[in-house]
Write a protein that binds this DNA or RNA. Structure first.
Lengths: 222, 222
DNA sequence: ACAAAAGTGTTGAGAGTACACCCATGC
DNA sequence: GCATGGGTGTACTCTCAACACTTTTGT
């Protein structure tokens, strides 16, 4: 009855912020189908590996980030299972979304750059499979999550300034916020702990903050 | 490399409202593992069937609702893939949530009642597998969706009164709303079309409304 | 006339939005 | 002293929450 089974893969939409832009990691496929097309990192789920472990494995393989890095936010997005999504046959993919801290990005831009590259979400090449649709789904989700949870902080270092935070909100929502209102809002949420001021800048030294809550906690931010 | 593959199933959390209570449909398992335990309706995904079709198939098999009924809201919830969730081996399940109109419920309470039964979400028996966890996840989702989308209307007939609508919100959130504020709020959203008044009641005849939007459209309701 | 549910308005509090100027530092 | 981003307050509007009485119908 279950002689013939669908195959199951995970794909990971890895976002980061770099050069004031929201970027997604794509890899160039080395095999058919879609040889030489760009695609999301992904692969088959092993029989003795959980879905999240499989997604983490892809994440680590493609970015070189160490798995125990606490700066990586990973969440399951959606499972895509249309019959025609893979020309090889029936392949169901469980898609995860990862957000990685821009500090770590610099480290792993080192992965040999020709077959794994960061692309702006507003300008990326034609993609293999239904991966363009998947990215568009992930973009909706990231906005939703930014509005209602603390996931945004996973894109920042442990200590950050309010304007760094504001910048990532402006990038993800692609709109400007008023600085006074933004400050007032996030400070009134009582989720930030004040830290020392940042002393290595050539302008008025900004105050640093850290997050009191856990990444992903549900709280209306904007 | 992919000699041994995980199996893939769909399970469906089917909600309805009955006797002023939110109910979930459970079936009594006839085979091991968990023989004679209650469980969510579900089964293996066929190789030539989409995930949503598989979920619909379970829904139809267990409730007898005809598939083309427009009163059924079906959405993918989450995919559960822990290694130990099924004692038979590696089984990944893509879980869907369905909301079905209480009018249809009466029709299909007919399914021979001993092996498929509606249980109050606040009082159901011990369940097979990780199905209790799945239902708790579905409950969070239904509240979220009630607050931010028009899915609640899938639990009502095409024409309904404001107080019927209020009642299902009160049931799902398990709290009372003020009648005046509730009326004001939903009418101000401009999503309802006034219809004729309901004439078969023994009290002041209430006005009927229908929904202008599509079920599932995103709009803050409460 | 009684039972049952429908229908309806006002007020106060809090949140969101718009808006512009001075401050602290490194060079 | 100049360039750079940091930091701050007020007034208006709008939304949300609290609150009780009259109306319409069937019996």
């Amino acid at each position: 009855m279950e002689k013939e089974r669908p195959s199951i893969t995970t794909d990971v939409v890895i976002f980061t912020i770099h050069q004031n832009d929201l970027k997604v990691l794509l890899i160039k496929r080395k095999i058919n189908p879609y040889k030489d097309h760009w695609a999301l990192p992904g692969g088959f789920v092993k029989v003795n590996e959980s879905l999240e472990d499989a997604a983490k494995r892809e994440l680590v393989e493609e970015t070189g980030v160490t798995e125990d890095s606490a700066d990586i936010y990973l969440e399951q997005l959606y499972t895509f299972g249309h019959l025609e999504r893979d020309p090889r046959g029936r392949v169901i993919t469980v898609v995860y979304m990862a957000l990685i801290n821009s500090d770590d990005v610099k480290l792993h831009a080192s992965t040999d750059a020709s077959d794994a590259q960061w692309f702006s979400v507003s300008k990326f090449p034609g993609l293999a499979f239904d991966h363009a649709k998947i990215i568009s789904y992930a973009l909706q989700r990231i906005m939703w999550k930014f509005e209602y949870t603390t996931v945004a902080f996973s894109l920042l270092p442990n200590k950050f300034t309010i304007s760094q935070l504001q910048r990532i909100y402006e990038i993800v929502f692609n709109k400007k916020f008023d600085k006074r209102n933004f400050n007032k809002k996030v400070l009134s949420l009582n989720i930030l702990r004040g830290e020392e001021v940042k002393r290595d800048v050539s302008y008025r030294p900004p105050k640093l903050y850290s997050l009191k809550k856990k990444i992903g906690d549900i709280i209306k931010i904007i």
